[in-house]
Amino acid sequence: MTFDGTEAMRILAIGAHPDDIEAGCGGALVKYAQNGHRVFLMVMTEGEQGGAGELRKFEQEQAAKQLRVERIYWGGYQDTAIPMGRELIQSIEAVVKEVDPHFIFVHYHDDTHQDHRHLAMAAISATRYTKNVLFYEGPTTQNFAPTVFVDIDQVLNEKIASIEAHASQVRKTNIEALSIVDVIRSSAHFRGIQGRVKNAEGFLPLRLFINIGA
C-alpha cells in the first residue's frame, strides 16, 4: 500500500550499464519510491569496459540504495557486447513476468552506443504486454524529443546522490571540465524549461495510458 492507502505500483527500470538508469530516470524513480511504490532495476552488464566489474557492481548497489530499490536483476551480459535477438528478448521477458510492472523505463533506441540501442529494440518486443513503457535519454542518445515530463526539482539532490554513488564514472564525460553531475544538472534544467518547471526528466512513450475515473 502507498501512503494514501492505494495499491502500490511496481516500477521496472532497465539499463545496459551501471549508472544508465540513474542518469535517465533516477528522479522519477525516487518520486515513485517516496510515494510508497516498489522500484526494481534490471542492469544488463557490470560495465566492465569502464572499470573493474566488481567495483561498478558495488557502485550500482550503493546507487540503488539512494533510489530505494527493492531488487536489482543482473543480466549477465558483457559490456559493449549485448546481442540483438531472441536470447536478449527472453532475458527481459523473464524479469517482466516476475515483476509484472505497471511502468517500465528503458533506453531510447536512437543511440550511438550499441548496447543501449540493442537493449531498447529488444525491450520493445519484451514489453509488448505492459501498458506503460517510457523511453529515457542518456548522454549518447540522439534525436530525443520528449513529450512526457516529470518534475524532479524536489528530488534533484537525491538523483545527483545516486549518480555520485558511481564514483569511478563521475569524471568520464569526454567533455573538458564537465563531470557527469554537471551534465545531469544541465539536462534537468533544459528539460525543465521545456516542461515549464525548474528541473525535469523527459520521456518518450512507447505506450502510456491515462486513467480517468475509478
Rank of each mutant, 00 (worst) to 15 (best):
A126T: 09
I82R: 03
V150F: 13
F105M: 01
D4I: 04
G27D: 12
D20T: 07
A122Y: 08
E201A: 11
G5H: 03
A188M: 08
H116I: 00
F209L: 15
A126K: 05
R207S: 08
H17F: 02
M44N: 00
F105T: 02
Q154G: 14
H17W: 00
R38Q: 12
N199D: 02
P83N: 13
A122S: 14
C25N: 05
E87Y: 09
V99W: 01
R86N: 13
R117F: 08
Q90S: 09
S187H: 10
N211M: 05
V155P: 06
E158I: 12
D20M: 09
F203R: 05
F105G: 00
W74Q: 00
A8F: 03
Q169N: 04
Q78F: 12
I82T: 09
E98S: 05
Q114T: 13
A123T: 14
R171H: 15
A214W: 05
E158F: 10
D153V: 11
L29E: 03
V96S: 06
N35T: 08
F58Q: 15
D100C: 06
Q66M: 12
N174L: 12
G47T: 06
D151G: 10
D19E: 13
F58H: 14
V99N: 02
V150W: 10
D110M: 13
T6R: 13
T127Q: 05
V39C: 08
I92Y: 00
H17V: 06
K159E: 06
E87S: 11
